[in-house]
């Protein structure tokens, strides 16, 4: 089994971080993984994205043209990556910042109002945690417990941020589970 995912958004939205967390969670649950960031001028304020592969066998190509899942946190990312999702794959849309529905009908679309939810929880920078929670809830691509452990690890230096981010993740998780494929 192999899952290829692209996480995309504005620089600063934390898409590289959530991609890394998925990769770590995969590694910690005994999978082979790769994490490949986009780098270059687009790092500086423009769009950022990373490609993550989680697989049972050693990862072949870390470059993926048609991923199993795309997680789009803003409109330019949706415009760029929606056409690439493999048929039957998953498309996660942050509806807080994306004002159009998905065009594709051959993929499973999962919507999450990530910014509204994190603002509501008093953690305006937590949209990425809501989104990744939703993604994990909808797909179970990696174990939930691994993700929560990683959030605690990630924010270990800023203990105040641990609980709010876990909360964001869990709210996302619920939203995702509600849209889980039957």
């Amino acid at each position: 089994m192999q899952h290829e995912m692209i996480f995309a958004g504005f620089g600063g939205q934390g898409v590289l971080l959530i991609g890394k967390m998925i990769a770590y969670a995969g590694l910690n649950s005994g999978k082979e993984v790769s994490w490949l960031p986009s780098y270059g001028p687009e790092m500086r304020g423009g769009t950022a994205n990373c490609t993550v592969v989680v697989a049972d066998e050693p990862v072949g190509s870390p470059v993926v043209a048609s991923p199993w899942a795309v997680v789009a946190m803003n409109l330019p990312s949706l415009d760029k990556f929606e056409p690439t999702v493999a048929p039957g794959g998953v498309l996660v849309i942050n509806t807080s910042l994306i004002n159009r529905p998905a065009v594709r009908t051959d993929v499973r679309v999962v919507n999450v109002a990530a910014n509204e939810i994190c603002n509501e929880l008093g953690n305006p920078k937590g949209a990425n945690m809501v989104t990744v929670g939703c993604f994990v809830g909808a797909t179970e691509v990696v174990p939930v417990q691994q993700m929560e452990d990683l959030i605690r690890e990630t924010f270990a230096a800023k203990p105040k941020l641990i609980d709010v981010n876990v909360e964001c993740f869990r709210r996302g998780l619920e939203v995702g589970r509600a849209q889980k494929a039957v």
Binding site: A23, V33, W35, L36, Y39, V59, P62
Partner: peptide
């Protein structure tokens, strides 16, 4: 190449 330099793997 830059790919090997920038990517993360176990």
């Amino acid at each position: 190449d830059g790919l090997i330099g920038q990517m993360m793997e176990p």
